[in-house]
Amino acid sequence: MTVLRTTPESEATGLTAKIYDDDVQSLGYVTTHTKTMAVNPEAYEAFEALLGTITADMDLRRYELVTLAAAAAIGSTHCRLAHGRKALKTIPEAELLLIARDFRNAGLPPAEVAMMEYAEKLSSNAAEMTKADGLRLREHGFSDKEIMDITLAAAARNYLSRSVLALGVELDRPPTLSSELQDALLASMETRRA
C-alpha cells in the first residue's frame, strides 16, 4: 500500500474530482493508481495530455501491444491488468490470452512481434539499444513517425509504471477482466521474475 495520503472520493474537489470522474466514466470506479497519481493532479493531467498527443495517430491495437510488452518488462502488474482490460477493445480475448502468455508464439505478424520486442528492450535495457533496434522496425515497414510513436508509447509506460511501483500502489483487479485473462497476464509476470 502506498505511503501517500490520497484524497477520498467524497472529498475530491477541482482537478482531482475531474480526474476521479474520468475514471468513473470510463471504468465505473476510481483506480488506486489514479488516486495515487492525483496527489499531484497537474502532473497527472500533463501526463495524460502527453499520452494523448503520442497516441493521437497511433493505432489502438499497436498502442496496447506496446504497452503490454513494456509493462511486462518493467514488472508492472498494475499496467498489465489495466491494459489487458483496455486491449479487449481491439483484441479478442482468445488472441489476447495467447499474447499474454507468450507474444512471440501467439501467431502475431512478425512486425507486431518486432514492435513488442522493441518496447520490451526499451523497458528492460534501454542503455543497450542501438541503431539496429530502430532499423529492425523500419525493415518491418514502420515509418519514422511510427517508430517515434512506438518509442514514446513505451517510454511513457515506463514513466507511469515505475512511478506506481515506486509508490507501492495497491493492485487493482479490473472486475470486468476474466479470471483466465488475469491469470495469463500475471503468470507471464511470474515467469519473468523466475
Results as ranks from 00 to 15, higher is better:
residue 10 S to D: 07
residue 12 A to C: 00
residue 18 K to P: 02
residue 21 D to R: 14
residue 24 V to H: 07
residue 24 V to W: 00
residue 31 T to I: 06
residue 37 M to Q: 11
residue 38 A to Y: 01
residue 41 P to T: 05
residue 46 A to T: 06
residue 47 F to E: 02
residue 51 L to T: 06
residue 51 L to F: 09
residue 53 T to I: 03
residue 57 D to T: 11
residue 57 D to E: 11
residue 57 D to G: 02
residue 57 D to S: 10
residue 60 L to W: 05
residue 60 L to F: 05
residue 61 R to N: 02
residue 66 V to P: 04
residue 69 A to Y: 03
residue 82 A to R: 07
residue 84 G to Y: 07
residue 84 G to K: 05
residue 96 L to M: 05
residue 97 L to Q: 07
residue 100 A to L: 00
residue 102 D to Q: 06
residue 104 R to A: 11
residue 104 R to G: 06
residue 106 A to E: 08
residue 107 G to I: 08
residue 109 P to H: 15
residue 109 P to W: 06
residue 114 A to Q: 14
residue 116 M to N: 12
residue 119 A to S: 12
residue 120 E to L: 06
residue 125 N to D: 15
residue 133 D to R: 10
residue 136 R to A: 15
residue 139 E to T: 12
residue 139 E to R: 15
residue 141 G to M: 01
residue 141 G to N: 01
residue 142 F to W: 02
residue 152 L to W: 09
residue 160 L to Q: 14
residue 161 S to N: 12
residue 164 V to P: 04
residue 165 L to A: 03
residue 165 L to D: 00
residue 168 G to L: 02
residue 169 V to G: 02
residue 170 E to D: 07
residue 170 E to V: 05
residue 172 D to L: 01
residue 176 T to K: 12
residue 180 E to L: 10
residue 182 Q to K: 04
residue 183 D to V: 07
residue 185 L to F: 02
residue 187 A to Q: 13
residue 189 M to E: 11
residue 192 R to K: 15
residue 194 A to M: 09
